[in-house]
Nucleic acid binder design. Structure first.
Lengths: 262, 262
DNA sequence: CAGGCCGTGTGGTCAGACCACAGCATATGC
DNA sequence: GCATATGCTGTGGTCTGACCACACGGCCTG
């Protein structure tokens, strides 16, 4: 079988032409298996060579489709033999979201200011959700995972700027995960990831890192307090001030306030 | 040059081993070019064969990277010769966002309910933004592109259910685009796309399509009215009711209200 | 029975060969 | 002189076959 067979043959084509490219055939086949429940997280995909012969395409086309699935965070591949080898369904969205947003920012498809605005919207929604969930329970909500990160940031002087900002990102991500919404959590991870280099580049613009980091730590605590108190309005306001404050201080964003978060 | 040269050679490796896989080398190379501004939307990527020899990898590895970029919405490829052929930077995020979310939903990485919740959050943010932007101007805001879609939906009886829902999706997307935030707009496109099949599948659950579609059309108009009036609070409430109402009616979502949107 | 060895199947990569296609330069016709 | 037809050239799209490194698991050996 040669390439011409798999696609179109002008005169009286016995087999109907397939406008899809070979790798799309593979992708859609796997997607259909996922939708039908024939493939669930943890399952192995057939071997590349098997998939190729089953679908009547070349192995390279299969690999192009698998590469897409891998970048999108749907599969994990590993060489060798045994239970852990091959392509396994994992469904980890954050990696794909990060790649997508990072590249779109790089390609000027996304404006950095829009990324920040969007983060503001999602972050506000997250703390609102958490605060109301906390207020609805007599014993409050367990923000342990997030608070642990704050404790780590309190190791004053022993945390570099990059480490501090990484912990900061992890804290906000932890809040998103605590809200239980995987979609928002992965979006936040992607948004933050896509502008990470810009955030780091803004540090030298700060008048005093010690002062800023101290303020950030205090603001984090106050956000947690507002959530635990169940005061959604307060939590939303504080998280908005927290984020816009930092970006304004690093001359990153011009607009001090944003109506979207209200 | 064989595969072993490109990767590791155990004894006294003259060239340092590269833990990255070949396609990642290509991807990062292109990303670096984008970040440095050496590649901007509209530019052509080097030919696959050229890229391969320049980076010292095989053409198949280059193609795997290009495939990823294509699915992520960064490039567009075309065969033949001339100015329109080859791989061209386009930076259209919505396609990649749709693929990502659709596949993650299929692979159970995203819960459909979380998708709806997230859409609620973003949609509320969009109309809030629009209403405040409109209220700040004496002449209001031009919602023309969105209203045109509503007019198309008013061709009662001559619009199939699928067409109606497509117009519905386009309307909401138009609002997001009018807000000027490309990040949110592409997210909305992806979210909607990822649950499109579920939305269509829910139509038979409706007691009366005529009644429901009529209500939806009325709600759309009322949302537009609220935006043009500049009443953000009202617009937010209406859009929330609009979305939750439909999903509740199709037995799609159990929770009638969601605190995230308040 | 324990340890080491090797077969086997996996993904990772490359090289080379075609194909269809689109543009453009050239040649050919009027 | 102009318009049309022709073929060349370079592009992505695809397949095939060949290696490699690797990890497991059964087998053999001590």
């Amino acid at each position: 079988m040669t390439a011409v067979d798999a696609r179109a043959v002008s005169p009286a084509s016995a087999a109907p032409i397939d406008p899809r490219r070979a790798w799309q055939v593979v992708l859609q086949h796997i997607e259909a298996d996922l939708l039908a429940g024939r493939l669930v997280p943890g399952d192995h995909l057939p071997a590349e060579r098997t998939l190729a012969s089953e679908l009547g395409v070349g192995r390279s086309s299969v690999r192009e489709a698998l590469r897409v699935l891998e970048v999108l965070g749907l599969i994990r591949t590993q060489t060798g033999s045994g239970p852990q080898s091959g392509a396994i369904i994992v469904a980890r969205p954050s990696g794909g979201m990060s790649s997508l947003m990072r590249l779109q920012v790089a390609a000027q498809g996304f404006d950095v200011r829009d990324v920040v605005k969007t983060r503001l919207v999602l972050e506000a929604a997250v703390v609102t959700e958490l605060a109301e969930a906390s207020g609805a329970r007599v014993d409050g909500l367990d923000l342990g995972p997030a608070v642990e990160l704050l404790d780590a940031m309190d190791a004053d002087g022993r945390v570099s700027e990059a480490e501090f900002l990484a912990l900061d990102a992890a804290f906000h991500l932890a809040l998103a995960e605590l809200s239980g919404n995987a979609v928002i959590a992965s979006m936040m991870a992607g948004l933050r990831n896509s502008i990470e280099s810009y955030v780091l580049a803004g540090v030298p613009n700060l008048p005093s890192w010690a002062e800023t980091s101290g303020r950030l730590r205090h603001e984090h605590r106050s956000i947690v307090d507002a959530i635990e108190t169940g005061d959604a309005e307060l939590a939303r306001g504080r998280v908005r001030a927290h984020i816009t404050g930092y970006y304004t201080e690093t001359n990153f964003i011009s607009a001090p306030a944003d109506p979207l978060t209200r």
